[in-house]
Design a protein around this nucleic acid. Structure first.
Length: 785
DNA sequence: ATGCACGTACTTTTT
DNA sequence: GTACGTGCAT
């Protein structure tokens, strides 16, 4: 196969580049992933063993996609490549060699919720007022420090003001606590990996010798620790290939440092630099608009996207009266374009700055019966019940992980509350070991606890011992998980819970079991295909558990399409951040207002800076460059935020788009107030005459309404709910129902499952109730025609 | 130990 | 406007 075929000249150059540092500026839609995968395949084809290639991404999704595309190019040997996220790769390295710098290789990984719990306890233990020293603030300072590879001591030395010293102290305590429990937070994985490479020369030699080529995706988002790590690993062969786009750097607030990509040349003066500027996604008009915006940023690497798709539709700027009208407008445009341009719902995306913008859209789409799917909301492995079950698993893997223990200690409820936990922690401290160790030790708790307390604790201790035992005897992960669920009676407990969410929770736990099965299966398959156990997983059974836990914590993405009510063919709603890397024929950028985009925190707050404004501008740029054919920019003249309705100003970024590229609609029409919006003419403009602008345009459009919704298609007769409940579900999706307190709503999901019986999810249209899950037997719903 | 009520705060969230 | 967390009362 000719790996250079079908690539443009700069892409070919990037693919065929042989040795030495390589920086690829890959603009939006410039075929970045294609170039990267072809380059890797090219390396393999030219004799580099996959085993000696390290490819790093930021997300599991990107890693997975790259792996799949590579397997298509080079076959299953791609599996032997080290390809993964920074965090996952670091975790693996630390499990293999972490003992060389005194780490317990069976560390567990804290997720952000665990981190917060830990920090809250630290703040409390330090007798500090958690209002003055917020755990979340402390954590972000800790994270900043770690991103810059600063130890607690270094932070303490730099601290001048008293409160900085306090935070430095909290960092130190937090770190002590983590190490004592053999746990690491996300940032530690990087920090400790760098330390490992720096402090253990033979480890550095081992890995840097091995990795002939190091490739890094989304390089604009790396932080100092990540760069140091990659730099060390590529130090021997100096084949470091980085791909990124400074214009799409939107994670500075998480420690990403754009300067690293911008200064790459300074660090590697012999670096080859390639720019991928041909865009295969958008029309020239969209690119020009995007360029108008992004070119206002200072200090960016100079480049400009171009395409063979000359011209294209104008971008549309629509001003609406308020957020509801804004959403209604988008719905109408979707319906119109879908019919006139034969597009599917899946061809549309609505991008927003903040998730709080979603409500009006959800309501408007619900009403019009156009399917809408919200992405990036809650993640599977972050659900409470999942984390509770996983806590058992984590603790089995690492019995010193008190965070995990405290999470499951009273789930399901077994009468152990904070008082008891305090007592146990006190004992643990006295004996200088973990709570888990104390509880596992038969003799140690007996006399120290009051009999009434001991009676509650003993069954727990028995359970814990059994679980440890189960871990030894289990054949695989699924087997162990089954035993945990059986012994804890978790499913039975969830089933007994009477709230509507318990239905979901039970289903989620079952989903987790399926994830375990998939994991076991994948493991078996990989072993099969490669004819051997891969080095990562062939370290005995406990590590297999560690692998899974690593996957789970590090792969927040477990957020399947958790949906029975969200079809694949649906309009997508998401934040600009979540949209990075995606593309849609039609994009709506909603809320193009001062305060929202750019966000108020970047403009009005006292900490606002040019850097922040520039990042907001990059967000706008990312949003625009998602669009293939059409881009709509919408704003609401009045918006309710934090319970207050205010008149808005249009985004300053709009003025950066060349005027001829913009078609103004609704209140944005010249003379309708929209154009003047940034002065203060709004008051009068909108209310009376202003509306006309879109009214005329819109009235002719068909607009499915509520009453048109079919609820009659042969479903059960609407008699008593209870009587119907015994048989087939009496409610189906799209039924209109009435609830005595919530009012009228629309059934958006219905099922008959679990111990709680039939349940429905109802989107209430009155009084901002939103969506609620209801158990039919309890909810006393009435069907209305 | 659990439930309710009041107060507060509230971008974005790859791992 | 809401959602969550803390604190008090049962």
């Amino acid at each position: 196969m000719d790996l250079l075929e079908g690539l443009n000249p700069p892409q070919q150059q990037a693919v065929a580049h042989s040795e030495g540092p390589l920086l690829i500026f890959a603009g939006a839609g410039s075929g970045k992933t294609r170039t990267l995968t072809h380059r890797i395949a090219y390396l393999i084809e030219h004799g580099t063993s996959p085993h000696r290639i390290l490819a790093v991404t930021f997300t599991n999704k990107a890693a997975k996609e790259m792996r799949e595309r590579l397997e298509k190019l080079v076959g299953p040997v791609a599996k032997r490549m080290w390809l993964g996220t920074f965090h996952a790769l670091c975790a693996q390295m630390l499990r293999i060699h972490g003992d060389r710098i005194g780490l317990n290789p069976r560390f567990s990984i804290l997720d952000s919720d665990d981190q917060l719990r830990a920090m809250k306890e630290i703040v409390k233990d330090a007798n500090l007022d958690s209002d003055r020293f917020k755990p979340s603030v402390a954590l972000s300072k800790v994270s900043d420090a770690k991103n810059d590879l600063l130890t607690p001591e270094q932070v303490a030395l730099r601290a001048n003001k008293p409160h900085e010293k306090v935070y430095a102290n909290l960092y130190a305590r937090y770190q002590e606590r983590l190490r004592a429990n053999s746990v690491m937070d996300f940032d530690d994985l990087l920090v400790e990996s760098v330390r490992l490479l720096k402090e253990s020369p033979e480890t550095l030699e081992h890995w840097s010798d091995r990795f002939k080529h190091v490739l890094i995706d989304e390089f604009q988002d790396v932080n100092e620790a990540q760069f140091q790590w990659a730099r060390l690993l590529s130090g021997k062969h100096r084949n470091i290939c980085v791909v990124g786009d400074d214009d799409q750097s939107i994670y500075a607030w998480r420690g990403a440092n754009v300067k690293i990509i911008l200064d790459f040349e300074k660090i590697y003066p012999d670096a080859t630099i390639i720019r991928l500027e041909q865009n295969y996604r958008s029309t020239q008009n969209i690119l020009d608009a995007a360029y108008g915006v992004i070119s206002q940023n200072a200090g960016r690497a100079s480049k400009r996207l171009w395409t063979e798709e000359k011209g294209g539709a104008q971008l549309v700027l629509h001003g609406a009266l308020n957020a509801q009208e804004e959403a209604a407008y988008v719905v109408r445009q979707v319906e119109l374009l879908r019919r006139e341009e034969h597009l599917g719902f899946g061809d549309f995306a609505i991008l927003c700055r903040v998730n709080a913008q979603s409500r009006p859209f959800e309501e408007a789409f619900l009403r019009s019966r156009v399917p809408l799917k919200l992405v990036g909301t809650q993640r599977f492995y972050e659900r409470r019940e999942i984390r509770d079950v996983l806590a058992y698993l984590r603790w089995i893997y690492n019995p010193d992980d008190d965070g995990a223990l405290k999470r499951f200690i009273n789930v399901p409820p077994r009468g152990i509350g904070s008082a008891t936990i305090d007592k146990l922690e006190g004992m643990a401290r006295e004996q200088n070991r973990s709570v888990g160790a104390v509880l596992l030790d038969n003799g140690s708790t007996g006399k120290a606890l009051a009999p009434t307390v001991a009676r509650k604790v003993e069954p727990l201790q028995r359970l814990m011992r059994h679980l440890m035992d189960d871990a030894q005897k289990s054949l695989n992960l699924t087997d162990l998980m089954d035993k945990i669920l059986e012994r804890t009676r978790m499913l039975e407990w969830l089933r007994g819970e009477r709230d509507a969410d318990s239905v979901d929770r039970e289903a989620n736990v079952e989903e987790l079991v399926r994830a375990c099965e998939a994991f076991d299966l994948r493991l078996a398959e990989d072993v099969d295909e490669l004819g051997e156990t891969s080095e990562i997983w062939n370290e005995g059974d406990p590590l297999r558990l560690g692998m899974f836990l690593g996957d789970v914590v590090l792969d927040g993405a477990g957020d399947k399409d958790n949906s029975k009510n969200q079809s694949d063919e649906a309009v997508t709603f998401m934040t600009l951040h979540a949209a990075k890397g995606l593309e849609f024929p039609v994009v709506f950028l909603a809320g193009v207002e001062q305060g929202l985009l750019p966000h108020s925190r970047a403009v009005f707050s006292e900490s606002a800076s040019d850097e922040q404004l520039e990042e907001e501008r990059r967000l706008m740029y990312v949003g625009l460059t998602r669009a293939e054919k059409r881009a709509y920019l919408t704003y609401a003249q009045q918006r309710t935020m934090h319970g207050r309705t205010e008149t808005t100003q249009t985004s300053q970024f709009l003025e950066e788009i060349p005027a001829h590229l913009l078609e103004r609609e609704g209140l944005a029409k010249a003379g309708q107030g929209g154009f003047m919006a940034r002065s203060s003419e709004w008051e009068n403009a909108g209310r009376g005459a202003g509306r006309g602008g879109y009214r005329e345009r819109v009235e002719s459009l068909p607009r499915p309404t509520f009453s048109a919704a079919s609820s009659s298609s042969g479903s059960a007769s609407s008699g008593s709910v209870r009587e119907a409940n015994a048989k087939a579900p009496s409610f189906r999706v799209s039924d209109k129902v009435r609830h005595k307190t919530y009012g009228d709503g629309l059934v958006v999901a219905a099922a008959h499952q679990g111990g709680a019986g039939e349940w429905v999810e109802v989107a209430f249209l009155t009084g901002g109730v939103g969506k609620k899950k209801l158990i039919v037997a309890f909810a006393n719903l009435e069907k209305v025609e």
